[in-house]
Every structure is written in structure tokens, then in C-alpha cells.
Computed example of a mutant assay.
Amino acid sequence: MARRFTEVLGSIWPAQHPKIHAELNKLAVEGLVEVESEGPRRRKAYRITDAGVTEVKRWLTEVDVDHTMRLQLLLRSLFFWMMDTDELQRHLESEAQYYRQLADQYRDYAARKDRGEFGYSEQTQSIRVTIEAGVRLYTALADWADWAQTVPPAKPTPPPKP
């Protein structure tokens, strides 16, 4: 479960393996999930309970979405003026490459889903929608980093003409 969580959500909602299990234990105590089976090395498979389904539906329909985005890349952009032009160019090239690679990973995952490698359940289709958001978000961030290389402060402002 931790691997799957990281594969799909790791770059947008990171969670460490112990955090996931602690949360599952908390949800089990609250009656929102239950252990469906236990395998080797005490690995547990969980399933959502009826109460859990009700709570997720309540969260989806009654709780306001937190639209806060904490993107350190954008926070740093406020201070690009403090970097040397060459340093900033290297930084932005690196960021563009990073986000292109993430977008490509998500595209690959989307193609696997579209080929039916994970079936066609409602859950799989919802994950596909999430993956598409990742593709589009990371593509947009790569495009932004490419664009930012073409404007001040990444390119020095030409001196005014006399």
C-alpha cells in the first residue's frame, strides 16, 4: 500500500510508511476500516467499512476543499532576483527537467491504466483522473520553468536606449 500510495500521490501528498500505518490503525479504532486479512510478516490488508464509506462521502460533499498549495519552487521564485543569472539559468533548467520527468512518469502510469493493466473498476478510473491531474500540473510547471528562463531576472534586462 505504501508503494502504491507513493507511486500515485508521493509527489503531491507525501506520507512515510510509518505514517500510513499509524493512520490506518487510527481509522481501524474509529471503525472506518477493518483488517480484511493478515499475511506473512504480519502484513495486513485493510478494507473500508460502511461507516468509512459514509465518512468519505461526507468529506467529499460537506467539507470545504483546502486549496492551499505549498510549492517551494514558487516561493523561491520571489527571490530569483538574488541569484546570479547563470545560477538561475541552471536552477530553472534543472527544475524544468525535474518536472518533465515527473510528467513523463505520470504519462507512463496513465498509459498502463488506459491499457487496462489495473482493470477498469471505479477506483481505478478515479486514480486515472488523479494521474491526469499530475500529468497536467507537472507539464505546466516544466513549461513555467522553461518560460522563466527567458525573462528577467533569468535574462538580464537590457539597458535603456539613450
Rank of each mutant, 00 (worst) to 15 (best):
A2G: 14
R3Q: 13
R4F: 11
R4E: 12
F5R: 07
V8L: 13
L9W: 14
G10D: 11
I12E: 14
W13E: 15
A15K: 13
Q16W: 06
H17L: 09
P18N: 12
P18Y: 12
I20P: 03
E23D: 15
N25L: 12
N25W: 07
K26Q: 12
A28D: 07
V33K: 02
V33L: 08
E38P: 00
E38I: 15
E38T: 15
G39P: 01
P40Q: 05
R43S: 11
K44A: 06
Y46P: 00
I48Q: 01
D50L: 08
G52D: 05
G52T: 10
V53H: 09
V53N: 02
V53C: 05
V53S: 01
E55N: 03
V56N: 03
V56P: 01
T61H: 11
D66N: 15
L71T: 06
Q72R: 13
Q72K: 11
L73N: 01
L74W: 11
R76F: 06
S77Q: 14
L78F: 09
F80M: 04
W81N: 08
M83W: 12
D86R: 12
D86G: 04
D86C: 00
E87T: 09
E87S: 14
R90Y: 05
H91G: 00
L92F: 09
E95R: 08
A96M: 04
A96H: 04
A96G: 07
Y99C: 03
Y99T: 00
A103E: 10
A103R: 07
Y106F: 15
R107H: 04
D108G: 11
Y109V: 00
Y109Q: 09
R112Q: 15
R112A: 12
D114L: 08
R115A: 11
G116R: 02
Y120S: 10
Y120H: 11
S121V: 06
T124K: 01
I127C: 00
R128S: 13
V129I: 13
V129H: 12
E132K: 08
A133W: 10
G134R: 03
G134S: 12
V135K: 06
Y138F: 15
T139H: 04
L141Q: 10
L141N: 01
A142E: 06
D143R: 14
D143L: 07
D143W: 06
W144D: 06
D146L: 10
D146V: 13
T150Y: 04
P152L: 09
K155R: 15
T157Y: 09
P159W: 07
P159Y: 06
P160R: 11
K161R: 13
